[in-house]
């Protein structure tokens, strides 16, 4: 731990870096909070495992094989498992940034206290994003490890699922932060959770190849949504069937992350600075 802070020479890059570096304090704060209640964090590990057993193995007993978009065929469990790495990243990140940040922003006024210190809005937004990213990554990586030992990672490229899952987690953490700043009351949670997160979870190619099952217009709409790209990227790495599509997924997720983060910082500023 460094004790001495260097005086920062103004320069946009140095300034940006000093903010990102200071943002770690908010991660420390969240670790301090969860120090007493690790079980809450840990419990989230099981959700994707239950889906894998219940649907991947359960339905997999009947369906057995699924054709991919390019015509190759994989075992159903090996089809579902990489998607569950992506959904674990999404759910972990969204849960943290929607519920917990909403509480701190609107009820506990935690950030008002933080803003009286040298910490700024950017540090708070980045810090919360990083923390959600860490929490979500825990779930995604746990899922990856289980997949690996179940023999569901079909390609050596599968190791890249971990950085890909981090990117998916970051994208959804930023989107959750941006979204939560628009919510006014606890009742508003139903909209993002019920009308955005839940349909994405079901219809982004998690449990079936949408290109083969859904009408074309619906597939087109889904291709604009982030979880679709997260799943497509991670499944490509897991199965080793990688093409130009995965490059688009990567660029989409990076852009989605950047835009969401920008909205999150601006919205939090609008909400906290008057």
């Amino acid at each position: 731990m460094t004790a001495i802070t260097q005086p920062v020479q103004a320069g946009p890059l140095a300034e940006a870096w000093s903010r990102i570096w200071r943002a770690r304090r908010l991660v420390e704060r969240n670790i301090m909070v969860y120090r007493h209640q690790w079980i809450i964090i840990f419990s989230g590990v099981f959700e994707p495992i239950f889906y894998l057993v219940g649907i991947g193995l359960g339905l997999g007993g009947i369906i057995r094989e699924v054709p991919l978009a390019n015509g190759e065929v994989v075992a159903y469990a090996a089809f579902v498992a990489p998607a569950l790495v992506a959904t674990a990243a999404m759910n972990g990140a969204v849960f943290e940034t929607i519920f917990n940040v909403f509480f701190k922003l609107n009820y506990a006024k935690t950030y008002d206290g933080v803003l009286a210190t040298p910490m700024g809005i950017t540090e708070i937004a980045i810090g919360e994003m990083l923390w959600a990213l860490m929490r979500a990554s825990l779930y995604a990586v746990a899922m990856f490890v289980i997949m690996f030992f179940m023999g569901l990672v079909l390609s050596p490229l599968g190791i890249l699922m971990i950085p890909a899952a981090l990117l998916v987690a970051a994208a959804f953490a930023a989107a959750g932060l941006a979204g939560t700043s628009y919510l006014r009351t606890v009742n508003d949670f139903d909209v993002p959770m019920g009308l955005i997160v839940m349909p994405m979870f079901l219809f982004s190619g998690t449990f079936f190849p949408i290109e083969l099952a859904l009408p074309e217009w619906l597939v087109t709409i889904i291709q604009f949504t982030p979880l679709y790209h997260g799943i497509n990227l991670i499944r490509g790495l897991s199965t080793g069937i990688v093409g130009i599509g995965q490059l688009w997924d990567l660029l989409y997720l990076l852009a989605f992350f950047a835009v969401s983060m920008w909205i999150a910082i601006n919205q939090m500023e609008r909400k906290l600075i008057k």
């Binding site: 731990m1 004790a3 802070t5 304090r25 420390e28 704060r29 301090m32 909070v33 506990a108 006024k109 935690t110 008002d112 206290g113 933080v114 009286a116 210190t117 040298p118 910490m119």
Partner: peptide
């Protein structure tokens, strides 16, 4: 000291001070 207390309600009394010190980069 703001008009309405904005202590960190998820932390203990001591942690509130410890964490605040971290925001100010005060050595442990």
């Amino acid at each position: 000291v703001p008009q309405i207390d904005n202590l960190d309600t998820e932390l203990t009394v001591r942690e509130n001070l410890e964490m605040y010190a971290r925001y100010f980069d005060i050595p442990r």
